[in-house]
Design a protein around this nucleic acid. Sequence first.
DNA 1: ATCGGATTTAGAGTTGACTTTAAGTTGAAG
DNA 2: CTTCAACTTAAAGTCAACTCTAAATCCGAT
Lengths: 129, 129
Amino acid sequence: MYTIQDVSKKTGLTAHTLRYYEKEGLITGVERSQGGIRQYTDEDLERLGLIRCLKNTGMSIQEIARFVQLTHEGDHTLEERVELLREHRERVLERMAEMQEHLDKVTWKLNFFTEKLRAYQEKETKKAK
Amino acid sequence: MYTIQDVSKKTGLTAHTLRYYEKEGLITGVERSQGGIRQYTDEDLERLGLIRCLKNTGMSIQEIARFVQLTHEGDHTLEERVELLREHRERVLERMAEMQEHLDKVTWKLNFFTEKLRAYQEKETKKAK
DNA sequence: ATCGGATTTAGAGTTGACTTTAAGTTGAAG
DNA sequence: CTTCAACTTAAAGTCAACTCTAAATCCGAT
């Protein structure tokens, strides 16, 4: 059993964010102590693991909530879940290819400026003589 | 010379967004007709090209504005500009590595669910007999 | 038993990046 | 010359994803 702070440390999400995720239906059924304090299990941590992967690859809170809801509805939603993950995967691959392309242009510009800087510094050195 | 609509079509940014970018200092010195209407040049388009690359690789509006401002200050800011691009490039590479890692986990989960779906469908088929 | 730092809630506030609105102006086509 | 879609501005509105606040409760340590 982990407190919200333990989980915060393990996941890098703040306690605020963890409560927010719960409110939004991303992580459900977290146990409470008799006093109402959250007690996360290892299973909760694992579920948070998948959530973080989806989040970090750009899935929206809403879409993740949808996925989690389908999971609770049982095996008859397996097809829809597979479809959802497949589409997400496609989108991420596209996004990454696009980023790579744009990053290449940035790299090109960087090299260009680096060369320009070299020339400028040489000129300044001469001037100083 | 291009109107804001022409540029919108060429870049995929809306006319609204182009004006917003101008207000935020991302694209400066766009010419105007005697009546005050924007007239973009090929050079403006090229500058927008770099802006789009930075934007698409996750640089914030503010940071791009900073970069553009440095550009206007002349060659003595070359070193800072190179540093800025270099750091951005590093961040993007890290981000992409992280995304790839998380995507791998999603792919793993997807395969897991696909197999589970196959088993489920087989069970349903038997039941139907 | 009591102290104080962590936890709880509902709800308000923030941030970044647009996006829309309102009210007025411009300019190519008929 | 008129028309009317496209342009202009400043400012308000939207959206996602947090982030913070206040006021109350919890609980491990002295």
